[in-house]
Simulated scan of single mutants.
Amino acid sequence: MKLRLTSFAQLFARIALGLGFLLPVFDRLGFLGAPGSAKVAWGDWSHFVAYTHQLMPFTNINTANIFGLLATIAECVLGVCLIVGYKVKWMGLGAAIITLTFAVFMILSLGISAPFNYPVFVFTGAGLLLYTHQNFRWSIDALLHNRKEF
């Protein structure tokens, strides 16, 4: 029973983290609604870059745009890989690093309570938990591992 629960918990964490990275990307690309719409944080790229610049006021807007693009690419890779279960251990570590970095910038720019208004540290912890595991049932990693045994 414990093995099944652990396998389900890992799958749940992978999907939740993966969607937690992909949905904000969809938001900043305008797929979830226009700026100012209910349940939309940014609604387009320019609003997202403005928020990135707010978190990184020591940069200019062009540099914030570059950091926003790099974060978006990383979040897409992390999100997809976590959902399909590819390199889960390392994607978990990447998820922890990117969310902890985000939390630090939130604290420095917006105050100590900012990352606690969102599940930023929960994402960091879930990523670290995935990193501590070796086997991931229902994943591409498991399929590749099983193929090597034959």
Rank of each mutant, 00 (worst) to 15 (best):
M1G: 13
L5S: 09
T6K: 11
S7E: 11
Q10E: 09
Q10A: 10
Q10G: 06
L19N: 01
F21S: 02
L23F: 01
P24R: 13
V25D: 00
L29A: 14
G30R: 02
F31H: 11
L32Y: 00
G33R: 04
P35V: 07
S37L: 13
S37Y: 06
A41F: 01
W42E: 04
S46T: 06
V49D: 00
H53Q: 15
Q54A: 07
Q54K: 01
N62Q: 06
T63S: 10
A64W: 08
F67W: 10
L69F: 11
I73H: 05
A74L: 04
E75V: 02
E75G: 02
C76Q: 11
V80N: 02
C81H: 13
I83P: 02
I83M: 09
G85H: 06
V88K: 11
K89W: 01
K89S: 10
K89I: 09
M91W: 00
L93Q: 08
G94H: 04
A95Y: 02
A96L: 06
T99Q: 08
T101A: 15
F102T: 07
A103H: 12
V104H: 10
L108R: 10
L110Q: 14
S113T: 08
A114R: 10
A114T: 02
F116K: 01
V122N: 12
G125T: 03
A126M: 05
L130S: 10
N135F: 07
W138L: 13
S139V: 06
S139L: 03
I140W: 11
L143N: 14
R147P: 00
K148V: 12
F150S: 14
